[in-house]
Design a protein around this nucleic acid. Structure first.
Lengths: 215, 215
DNA sequence: TAGATTGTTAATCGATTAACAATC
DNA sequence: TAGATTGTTAATCGATTAACAATC
């Protein structure tokens, strides 16, 4: 009986591709497909087939069958379990403006075991209200509630002037991973992970790609 | 006189870091700083100082001064010009739901030379209305308007069931770069660039990072 | 001058791709 | 069987980091 070897280092590049595989495979399953070959997958996703097989090998012990390819359902399950979609993680969000409210209503999170449990805003008008069933608290209660509910993930959708302060509150509340939509750099202690989701600059990078391709 | 050598290949990894530098440098400028050393920058951004210097060298011919570091204003200008923020690009958006409307009101785009000029939605109720000064057209006019206005960039914020069709319309309208927020895989011809912006899976990757760090 | 900092060359590391035997 | 496809080992490619001389 082969134990899953935790020692195997999963390449970062692989991890970033996993969600892409997952999305693709879920689509294929919806279309009624049962199996998929690494070649087909690679062509559709503009990747190299060997890379695909390697990626899948790291993440799942499901092996493909010559002539048939991989079983889609099994792959999906493997990737989901690898990414930790099985255990639910609680998330809080700071800033209930346009983007914040949109995220509160975004049901895709649940497919990844993510659950927004509380929202915060500095506007007293919003205090006590609910959006999409999630209660809005005063901004100054963030620390306390994060701690009490043992929340580890925070989303920042406040204006950039307020972002650093909110981030510091989150850290003091015990949050260990921050998803920052404010277009500003955050200074954070070492143990805290950050993901910058700078929408304008993402689009700018795409635009750059486009311009370079046109030459 | 040294001409800028167009032949120099800019590493992909560098390009993804440019927006991060830009954001950081703009913040520093706001704080009243004039110069910045690669060391300071590297520490704050959790990067290697040599990497920072190399990145900056590819993008700008502004050289740093020993003991002083780099002039922030010059660096910002160089990165902006490299990324093409100077020439304005028109953008259209398909799907004026929560996320779509939010993006329509997102003023950060202008800092990158990006300009949303038209919105589209299949809901006839919305036709002819304006959101944040941008007019909403019927979905079936997308092709025609994209062509007529020579728009090269499209944003997809429609439900995932509609995404492929909208994407195909965009391609037929001459669009060359698609920013896809619908959590679905798109099949597109080779010359068209896509960026998947799958919010749920981005957060899931962050969560994975968090869980792995906790071990 | 001494020290901080740059810019570049060389060494290392990690990720991608090519080649190919194994298998259904 | 023949052919498509897998999984693995070796070769290549690209990106990061270490070492260090040059400079203000």
């Amino acid at each position: 009986m082969t134990e899953f070897n935790e020692e195997v280092v999963v390449p970062k590049a692989t991890i970033t591709r996993l969600p892409v595989y997952l999305r693709y495979l879920r689509d294929k399953l919806d279309e009624g497909e049962e199996n998929i070959s690494s070649t087909t997958l690679a062509v559709d996703m503009r990747l190299n087939p060997v890379q695909v097989r390697k990626d899948l090998a790291v993440v799942s012990r499901v092996s493909g069958k010559p002539k048939l390819g991989f079983n889609i359902k099994q792959l999906i399950r493997s990737i989901e379990s690898f990414m930790g979609c099985d255990n639910v993680s609680d998330v809080l969000i700071a800033g209930v403006g346009g983007l914040g409210s949109t995220l509160l209503g975004y049901d895709e999170f649940s497919h990844y075991g993510l659950n927004i449990v509380a929202a915060f805003d500095s506007n007293p008008q919003l205090e006590g209200r609910q959006i999409h069933g999630i209660k809005i608290y005063a901004a100054n209660r963030l620390k306390e509630i994060a701690k009490a509910s043992n929340i580890k993930i925070g989303i920042i959708t406040v204006p950039k002037q307020a972002a650093q302060e909110v981030a510091s509150d989150m850290v003091q509340g015990g949050i260990k991973a921050i998803w920052n939509f404010a277009p500003t750099h955050l200074i954070l202690p070492k143990g805290v992970a950050v993901k910058y989701e700078d929408l304008a600059s993402s689009l700018a990078v795409l635009n750059k790609k486009l311009q370079d391709a046109a030459e």
